[in-house]
């Protein structure tokens, strides 16, 4: 494997966003790119990352390899990179280590680190293509704010999508709270758009603790997409450049 990222910052932000949810992960490398799928310890949330080969320049992977990496170790090394550094990931065919090289575009500094790999026996889940009942696209910062506000009142949030809009509501010991968003197009600032595509109304309840955790990815993309259907996990997607993505799946809470 040899994969060069223009900005080390991208990988730094991705790892920073998921490191509190999942600890040891396989980075599956093949000629289409670098993928990661892992569940949190409680098996309630699942992270799925795809960094497409096109996100790297150049990208070369001659043989499929799984790099088992402890994310806290990876984060320690990524913190040694300046945000603007060019990052090159390298690994042999049957690697014991992954090699990270940081190059400054402005100076002649070159830093090199090796991280020891782990053998991780991780089950890989098959997530079918799903036609969701509701797909909501909104500013990532807005979603983060709603989750942070509501967790002050309650552990859970009900997300209800109807043709009227999408309502995030919660109830707790001190009282209730709700935020409703309607579809909204801002010609001047399209990054503030809220788009709700609905094939049928849907209402599901989720643990806010996980949603707040997912929102650590807000720095990766201006927009977040929420996909809901009855009886399937919520998909929270942050789209990255070149069709790469960071997706979180969260199993709902159900009544008795």
């Amino acid at each position: 494997l040899e994969a060069r990222l223009e900005q080390a910052n991208l990988l730094k932000k991705v790892v920073d966003a998921i490191k509190d949810l999942v600890q040891d992960c396989n980075f599956d490398c093949n000629d289409s790119g670098i993928a990661l799928q892992a569940m949190d310890n409680s098996h309630v949330a699942l992270v799925s990352m795809m960094l497409k080969a096109e996100s790297f320049s150049p990208f070369r992977c001659d043989r499929n390899i799984a790099l088992g990496i402890n994310l806290s170790s990876l984060m320690k090394v990524l913190r040694c990179a300046q945000n603007e550094d060019i990052l090159t990931l390298k690994a042999d065919d049957a690697p014991d280590v992954v090699n990270l090289v940081f190059e400054s575009s402005e100076s002649d500094r070159l830093s090199e680190y090796d991280i020891k790999l782990m053998d991780i026996d991780q089950e890989h889940l098959g997530i079918p293509e799903t036609e969701y009942s509701a797909t909501i696209s909104m500013p990532a910062a807005e979603f983060q704010r709603i989750c942070r506000d509501l967790i002050a009142l309650s552990e859970s949030v009900a997300i209800e999508a109807t043709k009227e809009g999408v309502k995030f509501s919660c109830s707790g010991d001190i009282g209730n709270g709700a935020v409703t968003l309607r579809s909204h197009t801002n010609v001047e600032k399209p990054e503030l758009n809220v788009d709700i595509a609905l094939s049928e109304p849907v209402a599901l309840t989720f643990s806010l603790k996980y949603l707040v955790n997912f929102c650590k990815a807000s720095g990766l993309s201006g927009t977040v997409k929420l996909c809901l259907s009855s009886e399937v996990p919520l998909l929270v997607e942050y789209t990255l450049a070149s069709n790469s993505y960071l997706r979180f799946y969260l199993a709902p809470k159900i009544g008795d």
Binding site: M39, S42, H43, L125, P233, Y249, A251, G255
Partner: peptide
């Protein structure tokens, strides 16, 4: 009180 389901209920291991 709603109870929490796991991801495994929905998605099969490959």
């Amino acid at each position: 009180q709603a109870s929490q389901i796991t991801i495994l209920v929905y998605y099969r291991a490959q």
